[in-house]
Computed example of a mutant assay.
Amino acid sequence: MNVDSLQALLDREAIRDCLYRYCRGIDRCDEAALRSAYWEDASDCHGAWNGSASGFIDQALARLRQGGRRVHQITNVLIELHGARAAVESNFFALQSTAARPDRETFLCGRYADRFERRAGEWRVAARTVVYDWIEERTRPEAAQDSAALFGLRQPVGCPAPMDTIYGLLGAVRAG
């Protein structure tokens, strides 16, 4: 394997890691993770939001911190590298509810069409357009129960940063 091939593999893995940080950030309301996925001057066209990525993060966190549940998963990541830029198409599945309507679920499928840029050796989103391919909304009365009743013995239950289990694990591993 030559040096260029190895660098391409490293670049692709760094881009995937950035995509996954975004998902953790949005699902756990982790502002640091969300901001680490975008360059400071990045743009985001995200449904009703079309503006700066920073503005998207601000309005999303204000809404998401009110409560509810959400899970984002990334699949089928296609990365086309062009030096310090990349065109990246990632399929996503998102299941969401709000604190106001915990019994109402929204299932979204679509694609993130991202322009990534490598700056000072780091890859982040410079411009994102969210393409929606599927939406399904349904009411599930049982989902309105509190976590203890809904999940029973299936504990722990996901929650916002920094209380979620993953942050305790990260702290312990980082501490050695």
Rank of each mutant, 00 (worst) to 15 (best):
A33W: 03
G25P: 02
G25V: 09
H46D: 05
S36C: 03
A33M: 10
A60H: 15
L61I: 10
I26D: 13
N50D: 04
V77Y: 00
A48T: 08
A48M: 04
W49E: 03
G67V: 12
R16L: 04
R65L: 12
I15D: 05
L34P: 01
V71E: 15
A86Y: 04
R28T: 07
S54Y: 01
V77H: 02
A62L: 14
R28P: 04
H82I: 09
L19P: 00
L64W: 14
H72L: 08
A37V: 07
I26Q: 13
A33S: 13
R65Q: 13
R16Q: 03
S36R: 00
R65V: 11
A62F: 06
E40S: 08
Y22I: 07
E40Y: 04
T75L: 09
R70P: 12
A32K: 03
S54I: 01
R21T: 02
I79C: 09
L81A: 07
S43V: 02
Q59G: 09
G47V: 01
R24H: 12
T75E: 11
D17N: 06
C18Y: 00
R35Y: 00
A32I: 02
R12K: 04
W39T: 05
R12S: 05
G67L: 13
R28L: 11
D17P: 00
S43W: 01
I26F: 06
D41A: 12
D44E: 06
A37I: 09
A86H: 07
V77I: 09
E31H: 05
A84E: 11
D44I: 00
S36F: 02
G83L: 10
Y20C: 11
R35N: 04
I15C: 03
C45I: 02
D44H: 03
D27Q: 14
V77A: 11
R12C: 03
A53S: 11
L78Y: 11
A33G: 10
